[in-house]
Deep mutational scan, measured.
Amino acid sequence: DDVELRDGDWRVELKDADEEILRAVEEAIKNGASEQELRELAERLIR
């Protein structure tokens, strides 16, 4: 699993992620995405 989400800690570690993925995830976090939404976003972007 390349995506690590810690309970109560919104730092997201994406291994080997490019800047576009990181920006998309950071934007989702700023917009108040839930953990499930972040997982789905990350899975779509990593593929």
Rank of each mutant, 00 (worst) to 15 (best):
D1P: 11
D1C: 05
D1A: 14
D1V: 12
D2P: 11
D2L: 12
D2V: 14
V3F: 11
V3C: 04
V3P: 06
V3Y: 14
V3I: 15
V3R: 13
V3L: 10
E4H: 15
E4D: 11
L5Y: 11
L5Q: 14
L5D: 13
L5F: 14
L5N: 15
L5G: 14
R6Y: 09
R6L: 13
R6T: 14
R6V: 10
R6E: 14
D7Q: 02
D7H: 02
D7T: 08
D7I: 06
D7A: 02
D7L: 04
G8M: 13
G8S: 07
G8D: 13
D9N: 03
R11I: 14
V12D: 15
V12E: 15
V12L: 10
V12T: 11
V12F: 02
E13P: 05
E13H: 10
E13R: 11
L14H: 02
L14S: 02
L14C: 05
K15I: 13
K15Y: 09
K15F: 09
K15A: 09
K15G: 07
K15E: 12
D16Q: 08
D16W: 10
A17F: 13
A17D: 03
A17Q: 08
A17G: 05
A17R: 05
D18A: 09
D18Q: 08
D18F: 06
E19F: 05
E19V: 10
E19K: 08
E19D: 12
E19C: 10
E19Q: 10
E20G: 13
E20N: 14
I21F: 06
I21E: 01
I21G: 02
I21N: 01
L22C: 03
L22T: 06
L22W: 12
L22P: 01
L22K: 12
L22G: 03
R23G: 04
R23S: 09
R23H: 10
R23F: 08
R23L: 10
R23V: 05
A24M: 14
A24Q: 13
A24L: 14
V25M: 13
V25R: 01
E26Y: 03
E26C: 07
E26V: 10
E27K: 08
E27F: 01
E27T: 08
E27C: 06
A28K: 02
A28L: 07
I29D: 05
I29E: 15
I29L: 14
I29Y: 15
I29F: 14
I29K: 12
K30Q: 09
K30S: 09
K30I: 09
K30Y: 06
K30L: 11
K30M: 11
N31H: 11
N31I: 06
N31P: 00
N31E: 08
G32C: 03
G32Q: 02
G32L: 02
G32F: 01
G32R: 02
A33W: 13
A33G: 04
A33P: 01
A33K: 07
A33I: 11
S34V: 03
S34T: 12
S34F: 02
S34Q: 04
S34N: 09
S34D: 06
E35Q: 07
E35G: 07
Q36D: 12
E37A: 05
E37Q: 10
E37V: 04
E37T: 06
E37L: 03
L38P: 00
L38M: 04
L38V: 13
L38S: 03
L38N: 00
R39A: 09
R39N: 04
R39H: 05
R39G: 02
E40Q: 10
E40F: 03
E40H: 07
E40L: 08
L41Y: 01
L41G: 00
L41A: 01
L41C: 01
A42S: 07
E43H: 08
E43G: 10
E43I: 05
E43V: 04
R44F: 02
R44L: 05
R44W: 01
L45M: 08
L45C: 04
L45T: 05
L45E: 04
I46E: 04
I46V: 12
R47V: 11
R47P: 10
R47W: 00
